[in-house]
Nucleic acid binder design. Structure first.
Length: 596
RNA sequence: GGAGACGUAGUUCAGUCGGUUAGAACGCCGGCCUGUCACGCCGGAGGUCGCGAGUUCGAGUCUCGUCGUCUCCGCCA
């Protein structure tokens, strides 16, 4: 017989009754009746009830066993009597009556939290004992889901003719983007590698190398502060790139992958399998953000013209001064108590608004603090344009265009939550397309790339030569799901002369393009195919599939918010020998000198 | 770098208006129990109320500071 097991803890059923088996696993729970002890034995695969009868030599040892100890038992599989069947257990029709018992690993310490029930506990403790946390059902499931997601991505893309490549982890620091993680070179003292923020240039080089369809579940490293949906340090992208494709080709390819992932790995309903495309400008106009949650409709409606001459000075002054008046129709909000409207206004003020005017259509009348300042004609136009009917409430934002859109966009999200408009079982994708190539830095007035500098401008060289830079659009797109930006992508600029001109507009001289991006610059002179790609964030995908609000819940060993690994003790000081070998000297600011 | 929320037993929480010895459940230790499946019953141990100062006759409770955790802003081409 195998030293540890003949079956796993989820495998046994009525078919095995009467046979002798060996099982190993963790003590999930113990029920000691004095005369008989029941142990629910758990492993990766499931739970099996073990029965310890009082006449066995190891009875007292089994009675002493504590939860989470690892044991091996030999025993006979017995069909349970009708009254003792447990329908809540996959193996509930049988039990194993133990004839031998080996303590593999006894738990001596008090557990820092319970493994057999999923109580909330401080995340710090969970991270410090991650190996215990990962035994719990929720985390165990999440990590498995992550694995299934990777497996399905690979299976799908390989079947579609994609090839997975590895690209370097030790590479060069890139001039744009986030802060780099640096790795000192021993061979070249004073010089550094950087960990890749994304394999962007490598995947483009692979296309120039004649490989047609690239993908990689690629680790990316960015030294930026964390958020609930942003792990500090490292994360993974489903990185893709294709040659000789149009934007439409890429959209179709990605839609197929996303739909398959959600259909096979979640129970969610996919709102539309061909994802709606929203121009960047429209997204800002309607939703006040470039990552709208379109699980609910509720667009912002422009009513600036209606209030040109309004008695309400807040409105008419803004309209006259080039500002805008935007309105949200909160369907069904009119029945809410006054406190609801006060809370909405308090939220808006907290976000920097001067106030949040509102009107409620109730009992055939339009009520609210500003109602008496609005003329009958203005009111008629307002109701017509917003489609407000009995039971609806209108919320107003007035001010400078960008700020007002952004503010009301936030109000829109809160309103949708408060009014229970979000179908939690829905996944609603959209493409945000036609991003501007450039934007003006509000502080410096400089023209800068608004996204990826390697994107192809729409209209090509002609557009760069003839158009106002701020009017030029790029073949640059985002995929957004339920208000979360999953990825950016682009059809790339593969023509060196267009690349030079694009960088020139953003203030980069020719010499700088050649020295900052030597690989692509050189490669594009030796026959570069038109190409494009995208890189959906794997972690955020798994978050959506698992319905988890925090990215750390779908990573086995995440860093905490302050970018520390509490289990391994990283980051940490290194020895003087290691520093000497790298010709590095530590120069801490005085207040941060370690006290050890 | 900035803002907010939180911090009471190993864990989850309660703790009234500032007032006697800070409670409960789970876990842990001991005892009882032969059919439970979140087993049950009896008993016990376990607390620098994050830390420090202040107000007060008296602080878990009020004030200030500080540390920690999380969330958000900045940042993330």
């Amino acid at each position: 017989m195998h030293p540890y097991r003949t079956h796993n803890c989820g495998a046994l059923g009525l078919d095995n009754a009467g046979t002798t088996v060996k099982l190993s696993g963790w003590v999930h729970r113990k029920r000691d009746h004095g005369g008989v002890v029941f142990i629910d034995l758990r492993d990766h695969y499931g739970l099996t009830q073990i029965v310890i009868n009082p006449d066995v030599p190891f009875f007292s040892e089994a009675e002493r066993v504590r939860n989470e100890s690892v044991i091996t038992i030999v025993g006979e599989v017995v069909k349970r009597t009708a009254e003792t069947i447990n329908p809540n257990m996959d193996t509930g029709e049988i039990e194993v009556v133990a004839t031998d018992f080996i303590m593999e690993s006894f738990v001596e310490e008090t557990l820092p939290f319970t493994v057999n029930q999923e109580l909330e506990c401080p995340e710090e403790t969970r991270l410090a004992y991650r190996f215990l946390d990962l035994r719990r059902e929720r985390m165990h499931k999440n990590i498995l889901l992550r694995s299934k997601t990777c497996a399905l991505v690979r299976e799908h893309l390989v079947a579609k003719g994609f090839v997975e490549y590895h690209t370097p982890i030790l590479t060069s620091s890139s001039p744009e983007g986030a802060r780099d993680y640096l790795v000192p070179s021993r061979v070249y003292p004073g010089q550094f590698y950087a960990l890749p923020q994304a394999p962007q240039q490598f995947k483009q080089l692979l296309m120039v190398s004649g490989f047609d369809r690239y993908f990689q579940i690629a680790p990316c490293f960015r030294d930026e502060d964390s958020r609930a949906d942003r792990s500090p340090g490292e994360f993974y992208q489903i990185d893709m790139e294709m040659s000789f494709i149009t934007q439409d080709d890429l959209f179709a390819e990605l839609e197929e992958l996303m739909v398959r992932l959600f259909r096979e790995l979640s129970n969610k309903t996919i709102a539309a399998e061909v994802f709606p495309r929203i121009a960047y400008r429209d997204a800002m106009e309607w939703y006040g953000t470039d990552k709208p949650d379109i699980r609910y409709e509720m667009k912002m409606i422009d009513c600036t013209d209606i209030f040109q001459n309004c008695e309400l000075k807040v409105f008419s002054h803004q309209a006259a001064a080039g500002g805008v008046i935007k309105v949200l129709n909160g369907k069904g909000a009119a029945e809410r108590p006054r406190k609801f409207f006060d809370d909405m206004e308090r939220y808006a003020r907290g976000e920097g608004a001067k106030g949040l005017a509102w009107l409620a259509v109730r009992d055939g009348e339009v009520k609210g603090p500003i109602a008496k300042f609005i003329s009958d004609d203005e009111m008629r136009q307002l109701l017509e344009r917003t489609g407000a009917v009995e039971g609806d409430a209108l919320f107003f934002g007035a001010g400078q265009a960008d700020e007002t859109r952004e503010l009301l966009g936030k109000v829109r999200q809160l309103l949708a939550r408060q009014l229970d408009m979000i179908d939690q079982n829905l996944v609603s994708f959209c493409w945000i397309v036609d991003f501007p190539m450039y934007e003006k830095n509000p502080d410096t007035g400089q023209i800068e790339f608004s996204h990826n500098p390697f994107s192809m401008p729409q209209g090509g060289m002609d557009a760069l030569l003839t158009k106002d830079p701020l009017d030029i659009l790029a073949y640059q797109y985002d995929i957004v799901c339920n208000g979360i930006e999953l990825s950016s992508g682009a059809i790339r600029n593969h023509r060196p002369e267009v690349m030079l001109k694009a960088f020139e507009i953003a203030g980069y001289p020719e010499s700088e393009v050649k020295t900052q991006f030597p690989a692509l610059w050189k490669a594009f002179h030796y026959g570069a195919p038109p190409h494009g790609g995208i890189a959906p964030g794997l972690d955020r995908m798994v978050m959506l599939l698992a319905d988890e609000p925090n990215i750390r819940e779908i990573i086995a060993f995440p860093l905490n918010q302050r970018a520390q690994d509490l289990l391994m003790g990283a980051p940490n000081y290194v020895s003087q020998e290691q520093l000497d070998e790298l010709c590095l000297e530590i120069n801490l600011p005085p207040e941060e000198t370690p006290t050890v």
